[in-house]
Amino acid sequence: MIDMVLASAGLTLIAIGVFCDFVAAIGLIRLPNFFTRLHAATVGAIGGAVVPMLGAALLAIGYEPLGETRFILAGVAFTTSIVTMILSQAGSHALARAAYRARAAPLQPITYDALAEKRGDSSE
Protein backbone atom coordinates (compact mmCIF):
# COMPACT_ATOMS: atom_id res chain seq x y z
CA MET A 1 0.00 0.00 0.00
CA ILE A 2 2.61 2.52 1.14
CA ASP A 3 4.92 1.67 -1.78
CA MET A 4 1.99 2.18 -4.15
CA VAL A 5 1.41 5.65 -2.67
CA LEU A 6 5.12 6.49 -2.87
CA ALA A 7 5.37 5.28 -6.46
CA SER A 8 2.34 7.28 -7.59
CA ALA A 9 3.56 10.41 -5.77
CA GLY A 10 7.01 10.02 -7.36
CA LEU A 11 5.56 9.48 -10.82
CA THR A 12 3.33 12.53 -10.36
CA LEU A 13 6.32 14.69 -9.45
CA ILE A 14 8.23 13.38 -12.49
CA ALA A 15 5.22 14.19 -14.69
CA ILE A 16 5.17 17.74 -13.27
CA GLY A 17 8.88 17.92 -14.11
CA VAL A 18 8.23 16.84 -17.71
CA PHE A 19 5.55 19.52 -18.02
CA CYS A 20 7.88 22.20 -16.59
CA ASP A 21 10.66 21.15 -18.94
CA PHE A 22 8.29 21.37 -21.88
CA VAL A 23 7.14 24.85 -20.84
CA ALA A 24 10.75 25.92 -20.33
CA ALA A 25 11.73 24.67 -23.79
CA ILE A 26 8.88 26.59 -25.41
CA GLY A 27 9.69 29.68 -23.33
CA LEU A 28 13.36 29.64 -24.29
CA ILE A 29 12.37 29.83 -27.96
CA ARG A 30 9.33 32.10 -27.82
CA LEU A 31 10.00 34.68 -25.08
CA PRO A 32 11.23 38.08 -26.32
CA ASN A 33 14.44 39.03 -24.45
CA PHE A 34 17.29 37.70 -22.32
CA PHE A 35 15.69 38.21 -18.91
CA THR A 36 12.41 36.50 -19.73
CA ARG A 37 14.30 33.64 -21.35
CA LEU A 38 16.37 33.34 -18.18
CA HIS A 39 13.10 33.02 -16.32
CA ALA A 40 12.16 30.15 -18.63
CA ALA A 41 15.52 28.49 -18.01
CA THR A 42 14.95 28.74 -14.25
CA VAL A 43 11.55 27.14 -14.65
CA GLY A 44 13.42 24.31 -16.36
CA ALA A 45 15.98 24.11 -13.53
CA ILE A 46 13.62 24.22 -10.55
CA GLY A 47 10.47 22.67 -11.97
CA GLY A 48 12.24 20.42 -14.43
CA ALA A 49 15.17 19.19 -12.34
CA VAL A 50 14.49 19.67 -8.62
CA VAL A 51 10.91 18.38 -8.62
CA PRO A 52 11.56 15.21 -10.69
CA MET A 53 14.61 14.45 -8.55
CA LEU A 54 12.40 14.56 -5.46
CA GLY A 55 10.05 12.26 -7.39
CA ALA A 56 12.93 9.91 -8.13
CA ALA A 57 13.77 9.85 -4.41
CA LEU A 58 10.19 8.86 -3.55
CA LEU A 59 10.18 6.27 -6.33
CA ALA A 60 13.45 4.79 -5.04
CA ILE A 61 12.18 4.56 -1.44
CA GLY A 62 9.03 2.81 -2.60
CA TYR A 63 10.79 0.19 -4.73
CA GLU A 64 11.30 -2.77 -2.38
CA PRO A 65 13.48 -5.07 -4.56
CA LEU A 66 16.42 -2.63 -4.29
CA GLY A 67 16.90 -3.53 -0.62
CA GLU A 68 19.13 -1.25 1.42
CA THR A 69 20.40 0.47 -1.73
CA ARG A 70 17.13 2.33 -2.13
CA PHE A 71 17.88 4.56 0.88
CA ILE A 72 21.24 5.50 -0.64
CA LEU A 73 19.59 6.31 -3.96
CA ALA A 74 16.86 8.33 -2.27
CA GLY A 75 19.34 10.23 -0.13
CA VAL A 76 21.55 11.09 -3.09
CA ALA A 77 18.55 12.22 -5.15
CA PHE A 78 17.19 14.31 -2.27
CA THR A 79 20.55 15.97 -1.57
CA THR A 80 21.11 16.68 -5.25
CA SER A 81 17.70 18.29 -5.57
CA ILE A 82 18.27 20.52 -2.52
CA VAL A 83 21.71 21.61 -3.74
CA THR A 84 20.31 22.30 -7.20
CA MET A 85 17.54 24.36 -5.63
CA ILE A 86 20.10 26.45 -3.75
CA LEU A 87 22.46 26.90 -6.68
CA SER A 88 20.27 27.34 -9.75
CA GLN A 89 18.54 30.44 -8.39
CA ALA A 90 21.85 31.93 -7.34
CA GLY A 91 23.30 31.26 -10.79
CA SER A 92 20.41 32.79 -12.70
CA HIS A 93 20.37 35.75 -10.31
CA ALA A 94 24.08 36.36 -10.90
CA LEU A 95 23.60 36.08 -14.69
CA ALA A 96 20.68 38.50 -14.70
CA ARG A 97 22.48 40.98 -12.46
CA ALA A 98 25.64 40.88 -14.55
CA ALA A 99 23.68 41.29 -17.80
CA TYR A 100 21.69 44.20 -16.37
CA ARG A 101 24.64 46.07 -14.92
CA ALA A 102 26.84 45.58 -17.96
CA ARG A 103 23.91 46.53 -20.23
CA ALA A 104 24.78 43.45 -22.27
CA ALA A 105 21.18 42.53 -23.04
CA PRO A 106 18.41 44.80 -24.41
CA LEU A 107 15.66 45.47 -21.87
CA GLN A 108 13.24 46.34 -24.57
CA PRO A 109 9.82 44.79 -23.96
CA ILE A 110 9.72 46.32 -20.46
CA THR A 111 6.89 47.67 -18.35
CA TYR A 112 8.67 48.82 -15.18
CA ASP A 113 12.35 49.07 -14.21
CA ALA A 114 12.59 49.35 -10.44
CA LEU A 115 16.39 49.17 -10.43
CA ALA A 116 16.80 52.18 -12.72
CA GLU A 117 14.52 54.22 -10.45
CA LYS A 118 16.46 53.13 -7.39
CA ARG A 119 19.78 54.18 -8.88
CA GLY A 120 18.37 57.46 -10.19
CA ASP A 121 19.17 56.29 -13.71
CA SER A 122 16.64 57.28 -16.34
CA SER A 123 18.44 56.22 -19.50
CA GLU A 124 16.06 53.37 -20.19
Partner: peptide, 9 residues
Protein backbone atom coordinates in the same frame (compact mmCIF):
# COMPACT_ATOMS: atom_id res chain seq x y z
CA UNK B 1 28.74 39.57 -5.96
CA UNK B 2 25.32 40.26 -4.46
CA UNK B 3 24.11 38.94 -1.12
CA UNK B 4 22.04 36.18 -2.74
CA UNK B 5 25.09 34.68 -4.43
CA UNK B 6 27.19 35.12 -1.29
CA UNK B 7 24.67 33.34 0.90
CA UNK B 8 24.26 30.37 -1.40
CA UNK B 9 28.04 30.15 -1.80
Amino acid sequence: LSIIVKTST
